[in-house]
């Protein structure tokens, strides 16, 4: 017992020493793409687990020259880039470890480097399919419009996951944004759920409005990938939780700060996601969700 107690005490002391060492080490420069609430939440999560001193800057307030200046002045041990724009700017700083957060997966192939680690908002197709299956067990024909250039691998994984759950994906391929409306128009009579995937060719304000039109007219729920769409009319969706994403990024940062850059960059997707529903929309389009699932959802209106 005393041996166990001694080990715990030792571990705590070591942890505190390590933490103190991080807190007293070089600061972490946090660059946010915008001054919006999800990014603030991610930064809070980052602070929670990083155990480091941070200095925050917002992109609208500073340009690339300003970033270089700040880096040369503060000599940060690590840069946290929150959002795509912040990451685009941060990769210009060479020799400093960069951890990203709140970045869509689709952009990552364009940015590479050993010093680049982080947590994307990528949610696996399985998670989407599982959520759709749980939330809408009776809706088996799911329409998806996608651009193979952006979402080909994602759709392949989605088809496999859907097959396992007995869901039929009705797919429409598009190559240009202007084709999306017609593709949706062609889908509206043959599906009972529209799945809006994070495909930049497909998603734009007009296509989303048209999806909502179809949703309200045909009583077809739209299942989406971000909170903001659920808030403005989609029936349900999965959402990468910014705070959790920040926490995961903080853990990676702490590891990099203590152990240095790994051989292989640490790049992970969203581990924790929340299932969002807009009960008002669901009620309007006359779709009920199982009671056992309802308790695990976050209502967004």
């Amino acid at each position: 017992m005393s041996g166990k107690f001694s080990a715990v005490i030792t571990a705590v002391i070591l942890a505190l020493l390590c933490g103190a060492a991080h807190a007293e080490g070089p600061p972490v420069l946090v660059i946010k793409s915008a001054d919006i609430s999800p990014y603030d939440e991610a930064v809070e999560g980052f602070k929670k687990t990083c155990n480091c001193r941070v200095r925050e800057v917002n992109l609208p307030d500073i340009d690339s020259g300003g970033i270089r200046e700040i880096v040369s002045e503060n000599r940060p041990g690590l840069i946290l880039a929150v959002g795509v724009d912040a990451l685009s700017l941060a990769v210009a700083v060479k020799g400093t470890p960069i951890v990203y957060s709140m970045v869509p997966t689709a952009l990552l192939p364009e940015i590479s480097g050993r010093n680049l680690s982080g947590v994307s908002m990528y949610i696996t197709p399985e998670k989407y399919i599982n959520a759709i299956s749980e939330l809408f067990p009776l809706l088996r024909r799911v329409g998806v419009v996608f651009d193979p250039a952006w979402s080909g691998p994602f759709i392949r994984d989605a088809e496999r996951a859907a097959h396992k759950k007995g869901i039929e994906l009705v797919l429409k391929q598009v190559g240009r944004p202007s084709e999306v409306i017609s593709a949706l128009h062609g889908l509206k009579n043959s599906v009972n759920l529209l799945w809006m995937i994070p495909d930049p060719t497909v998603v734009n304000p007009e296509t989303f409005k048209y999806m909502l039109d179809i949703s309200y007219q045909r009583h077809i729920p739209v299942f989406t990938f971000a909170r903001k769409y659920v808030e403005i009319g989609a029936a349900a969706g999965l959402n990468s939780v910014p705070y959790d994403s920040g926490m995961e990024a903080g853990e990676i940062a702490a590891q990099l700060l203590t152990k240095g850059l790994p051989e292989t960059p640490i790049r992970v997707g969203a581990k924790n996601v929340s299932l969002l529903v807009n009960r008002r929309i669901l009620k309007k389009i006359g779709i009920a969700i199982p009671a056992e699932v309802g308790g695990r959802t976050v209502n967004v209106e």
Partner: peptide, 9 residues
């Protein structure tokens, strides 16, 4: 949004 942050936020 062209894969920018606006796709999500």
């Amino acid at each position: 949004s062209n894969a920018g942050d606006a796709l999500y936020f």
